[in-house]
Amino acid sequence: MQHELIFSGFGGQGVMFAGQLLAYAAMDTGYHVTWIPSYGPEMRGGTAHCTVVISDKPIGSPVVRRPQIAIVFNKPSFDKYEPLVRPGGLLVINSSLVDDPVTRERLDVLRIPATQMAEQVGTPRLTNVVLLGALLAERPILPVNALCDALDAHIPAHRRNLLPQNIEAVRRGAAYAGDFETMGIP
């Protein structure tokens, strides 16, 4: 089994941390994992993305051209990755910021108003964890609990007081996707 995911959004939307969190959870669950960021000046205000590969075997390439799963936080990311997700793959869309129609066929699509849901929990900064919760409910790459444990273990010290909010955001994201009748749940 190998999962290849790309997280993409504006710098400051927590795209990098979302990927890292999933990577931590994968490592703690016992998988091989790689995380690579886009880095450099393009992150200043522009879009940022990271690639996560999770596998039960040692990982060769940490770069992927066509991910099985793309989690798009904003419109430029949607425009970039909608055409790239592999046939039969999954596109998770932050519908708070993206309302474009998906034109591809043979693609599972999960639209979730993650930024609004994050605001309801307390702050739009939780958009990333809402999306992660939804992702894992839709595609059980890892148990949702592993994500919560990873949050507990790796949340930066100065954000520790926000842990309950983060967990709540994961839970709401997962519940939203679980309730949602989507295609292709394995």
């Binding site: 890292q20 990577a23 490592m27 994992v33 790689t34 995380w35 690579i36 960021p37 940490p62 770069v63």
Partner: peptide
Amino acid sequence: DGQIGQMMEP
């Protein structure tokens, strides 16, 4: 190369 410097792995 920069990729090795920037990537995270267990």
